[in-house]
């Protein structure tokens, strides 16, 4: 093959690094995951040339769905220029030679760690989340066979008890990120360690959302327009953070702000964590 894209890639490796057989087996897992929204599907996760825990689940999902015509965006903490995002983008450039972008609107495939872009996603876009621990019940019940049973029986009372205990102790639910959700009114799911601020974006999202946990060898998915509800109580509705100041770069008041320490006297400034959103807002 001597197309323009393959010329850019590292020789000696298959397109997107994984062999076709492996990619196919991951896609089969993803199809199951899409068919049962929020349900965790075991898959034969492989060793990747990056460490487990550094996004290998997301990387394998991206590798198995990416095609030559895709435009890839990779973010970590909402930013395109953090080391891990740069490294993963560099990897896919090397083994796929696909087009990459920093613009959310231009991307067909977005791999992320810890954030969902502020710019709303569209139909046809695919979000890939890197997941460290896929099991929402893990801190309540450490045993995997037990938690699988709890999911099968929809036995989620223990989680509500934990949230209730938070309320009695602190007056509110004390979970700031990786806040558990109910998917399609059936499966409890961990949204990956995104701040709770991003949870509402999961709900009825027009994009396909895929989750990959490499070390834990699990896949799960949210097909487009799936209902996703953050756990709460009628008298203690789910809430997200708001800031009483705008982003100091772009003036946005609707984005997740990141606190940056600017001097040794405790001086701080608050800026958008989504670098693309911040730039676009500055331009307009």
């Amino acid at each position: 093959m001597n197309t323009a894209t393959t010329n850019l890639t590292e020789p000696g490796f298959n397109f997107a690094y994984l062999d076709e057989q492996t990619k196919r087996s991951i896609r089969r897992g993803l199809l199951k995951a899409v068919a049962i929204p929020g349900h965790q599907i075991p898959f034969s996760s492989r060793e990747m040339p990056m460490s487990y825990g550094w996004g290998t689940g997301g990387i394998q999902v991206t590798a198995s769905v990416i095609g030559k015509s895709d435009t890839l965006k990779v973010i970590d903490q909402g930013a395109d220029d953090t080391t891990n995002a740069v490294n993963i983008r560099r990897f896919f450039k090397k083994v796929c030679g696909v087009k990459t972008t920093e613009k959310t609107t231009e991307a067909t495939l977005i791999q992320t760690r810890h954030r969902i872009p502020e710019t709303p996603l569209n139909e046809g876009q695919v979000m890939v989340y890197q997941v460290p621990i896929p099991e929402p019940l893990r801190w309540i019940e450490p045993s995997e066979p037990e938690t699988r049973k709890m999911h099968a029986l929809e036995e989620y009372g223990a989680m509500y008890v934990k949230l209730y205990e938070d309320i009695t102790q602190y007056g509110h639910i004390a979970t700031a990120y990786d806040y558990p959700v109910m998917v399609n009114n059936r499966y409890m799911m961990r949204p990956s360690p995104i701040p709770r601020f991003d949870n509402p974006k999961l709900n009825m999202n027009p994009a396909l959302q895929l989750f990959g946990a490499g070390r834990e060898k699990r896949l799960y998915a949210l097909p487009p327009y799936t209902t996703v509800k953050s756990l709460d109580f009628e008298d203690h509705p789910f809430s997200v953070e708001t800031w009483d100041k705008p982003c100091e770069f772009c003036g946005a008041t609707d984005s997740y702000l990141d606190e940056v320490v600017i001097d040794n006297e405790g001086g701080r400034m608050w800026i958008c964590s989504d670098t693309d959103y911040c730039e676009e807002t500055q331009k307009s």
Binding site: G53, H114, Y256
Partner: peptide
């Protein structure tokens, strides 16, 4: 991998 992934940026969750 998982022990050392703590070296990756976590500033959003920390925020």
């Amino acid at each position: 991998g998982f022990v050392q992934h703590l070296k990756l940026p976590h500033y959003i969750d920390f925020q």
